Simulated scan of single mutants.
Amino acid sequence: MHKTWNKPLHKRKVWKSVSNTGKLIYYLQPLVDNLFFIWMQPLPFPTLLKIGYSCGLFFFLLLPFLCPLLVLVFYYGIFQYVAEQHLALVPPDNLDLLGAALHLWRFEVPNQKYLIYVTMYIDRYRVIMTAISSTIDYMRMALSFVFS
């Protein structure tokens, strides 16, 4: 903390005049540097792990926004349950959180042959994602041979 406040931008008068966007950019610089460092790692570090690391990093970045949102959804569900059970209020279809959750919980594929198609599509996109990431790795390898 002591090192941060001794930086030139953190002089009290200058820091008060910086906009909120400027402060956000200032504090996000180490995070972006870390992200660039991971993506510029040499070849044995595969692209799929870099994608997973980036997604994890963005998830932790979004946690301050996701937590209040999940709390709001949870309390709206409690409010809807109490309103339906005790006050006999029926929510509109586009705001029926409990009905949507119940529909998802009881979801079942009516025709079993569709399950085969779903698994085939999931496998297809898994193979496509692996092929794209391998292509990126091979292109980086070829470029490293050309420019070294």
Score class of each variant (00 low, 15 high):
8 P>I: 03
96 D>E: 00
111 N>H: 15
59 F>V: 06
66 L>G: 00
57 L>H: 06
20 N>R: 06
70 L>V: 08
62 L>R: 00
55 C>T: 15
59 F>Y: 08
128 I>P: 00
82 V>C: 14
101 A>Q: 05
56 G>N: 15
109 V>F: 14
91 P>T: 01
60 F>R: 13
31 L>Y: 04
122 I>K: 02
124 R>E: 05
16 K>F: 01
146 V>K: 06
144 S>W: 12
113 K>F: 15
73 V>M: 07
98 L>A: 03
125 Y>E: 09
133 S>I: 02
7 K>N: 07
16 K>Y: 08
3 K>Q: 13
111 N>T: 10
25 I>A: 07
106 R>D: 10
30 P>L: 03
44 P>M: 02
134 S>G: 09
97 L>E: 02
56 G>L: 15
110 P>W: 04
53 Y>D: 05
134 S>L: 14
38 I>R: 05
142 A>G: 01
142 A>H: 05
145 F>P: 01
46 P>Q: 04
138 Y>K: 03
108 E>L: 00
122 I>V: 06
79 F>I: 02
107 F>C: 01
111 N>P: 01
76 Y>F: 13
54 S>F: 14
145 F>T: 09
29 Q>I: 14
16 K>C: 00
66 L>T: 11
25 I>R: 06
10 H>Y: 14
139 M>H: 11
127 V>G: 01
4 T>L: 13
137 D>K: 08
9 L>A: 10
3 K>W: 14
106 R>C: 06
52 G>I: 11
140 R>Q: 12
38 I>Q: 07
112 Q>H: 13
60 F>K: 12
77 G>V: 14
4 T>W: 14
129 M>E: 07
40 M>N: 09
53 Y>R: 08
55 C>D: 10
134 S>D: 14
147 F>D: 02
54 S>G: 11
26 Y>D: 01
94 N>V: 09
53 Y>L: 09
90 V>A: 10
141 M>L: 08
113 K>Q: 10
33 D>W: 07
12 R>C: 07
5 W>G: 04
82 V>P: 07
147 F>W: 07
64 P>W: 03
106 R>P: 04
29 Q>L: 11
122 I>W: 06
35 L>Q: 09
17 S>W: 03
31 L>E: 02
98 L>Q: 06
116 I>C: 11
117 Y>A: 12
136 I>G: 02
58 F>I: 15
64 P>M: 05
82 V>Y: 12
115 L>K: 07
60 F>A: 07
95 L>P: 00
102 L>N: 08
76 Y>A: 09
23 K>D: 03
20 N>L: 11
31 L>I: 06
85 Q>R: 11
53 Y>V: 15
98 L>C: 11
50 K>Y: 06
35 L>P: 00
23 K>L: 12
95 L>W: 13
83 A>Y: 11
105 W>M: 13
93 D>S: 10
88 A>Q: 14
87 L>H: 07
69 L>K: 03
68 P>W: 10
27 Y>K: 01
76 Y>N: 12
92 P>V: 13
4 T>V: 08
